[in-house]
Write a protein that binds this DNA or RNA. Sequence first.
RNA 1: GCAGCGUUCGUCUAGUGGUCAGGACACCGGCUUUUCACGCCGACGACACGGGUUCGACUCCCGUACGCUGUACCA
Length: 470
Amino acid sequence: MTGQIVTRFAPSPTGFLHIGGARTALFNWLYARGRGGKFLLRIEDTDRERSTPEATDAILRGMAWLGLDHDGEVISQFARADRHAEVANQMLAEGKAYKCFSTQDEIAAFREAARAEGRSTLFQSPWRDADPASYPDAPFVVRLKTETEGTTVIRDEVQGEVKIRNDQLDDMILLRSDGTPVYMLAVVVDDHDMGVTHVIRGDDHLNNAARQMGIYTAMGWDLPVYAHIPLIHGPDGKKLSKRHGALGVEEYQAMGYPAAGMRNYLARLGWSHGDDEFFTDAQAKEWFDTSGIGKSPARFDFKKLENLCGQHIAQTDDAALLHELKEFLKVSDRPDLSNHHETVMLRALYCLKERAKTFPELLEKAHFILADTPIQPDEKAAKALDTVSRGILSSLTPQLQNARWTRDELEEVTSRFAEAEGTKFGKLAGPLRAALAGRAVTPSVFDMMLVLGQDETLARLAQASASAEG
RNA sequence: GCAGCGUUCGUCUAGUGGUCAGGACACCGGCUUUUCACGCCGACGACACGGGUUCGACUCCCGUACGCUGUACCA
């Protein structure tokens, strides 16, 4: 026992990495990484019907995108079935569990009768204290002999002390009639064997915790520290589902949200550190603690996500941003950047990144370097390029020809020109924008000139002022 | 049905037995400005409801309403 913190994320591979699952993973990751601990990944694939390798891949991709690196190998729960059965059999041998021969029909009949009489529908097996001599030669399940009296107290870092009367707990099945272990057993055995010290998971498992504790005590194992976190709801407060839009984290990647912004947003959803809203990974690791986790469910808010993403994009250094942009291009099925475009993009990022909240927005602002030449103005830009404007542009061109290509000088030349024309720079900006980018919404005209360079700028001005009437 | 959990501005949240109940996002208005974005200033805006405990409750207790979760030989 080294005292090292060990957390884990244990999704079932039945689909993509759900947004709620991603947050659970993030919390576990933050908790471990901030304390020099280990963060383990286990795939709960004991449901053979629903588990697919594709889903496992999707989960791994989602984690990779979010930068949630795990320690050690990915554990397959299914592969450990023998070990789970071994533990069940040990409990059987020690009288902590028993064989139950009740058929599913019998159980259903029991429940129906119980409901009719208004009694608890929790199944009470007649085999619990049966004499082994009376055992029939028939299939059986192995059930845990749960305490029938008293209460189980879950000491939870988030929920506090949660008390559940033991008469609310049935004798849960450990081994199915085909001998395969059930999830409840597998989780406990795996967490114990993997040395998990802190179980941070959705509060849909809170009730399960009480039953799982029965296995810990039956085996005489130390309990992990529990932290059951509230689920994430949709913007309408209802359970998050498909109609709320994107559920899988990969969809968020494809929509162009940067991973750092996503991490920041997800961390802040249901957890807080005073009034801090925008923070780095390093700060999150340092600050994250279960004491900052709230007890009520949070709703997903795209606006806030976007806001945070904008701040992260603006703060990311150019090389890293370019790298992430290229990844985005790939996953969103957009064409990759040519070498030339990549070079120019890197040069332009300084003026692009402070105006974009997502990668599609950034690309939109980068239209002036990505568009084919000659520039084809869109409708609004075309309006800015009327006869008068083109005349102005052609008289401005010679001035720029002789200018040194620095921001100060460009500003000076254009403002002097505007003054000589008896107008304001504002009147020049529209036509310039249209000529250089073919759009009405762009970065600053000076930034564009600087990024494009003198030759390209002059070429575009010439094209625009010479373009045919109408 | 039974059990568990929850409820502070529209949203995320801070917060204390005595606060002008704070911040952020969104929204609205204004400033700045070459468009967009940023930035700045301002406005709007909340303790679910009802009892109790207390000199005093958003804060503690009980109940109600609403919501969520569980109640499987699913995970």
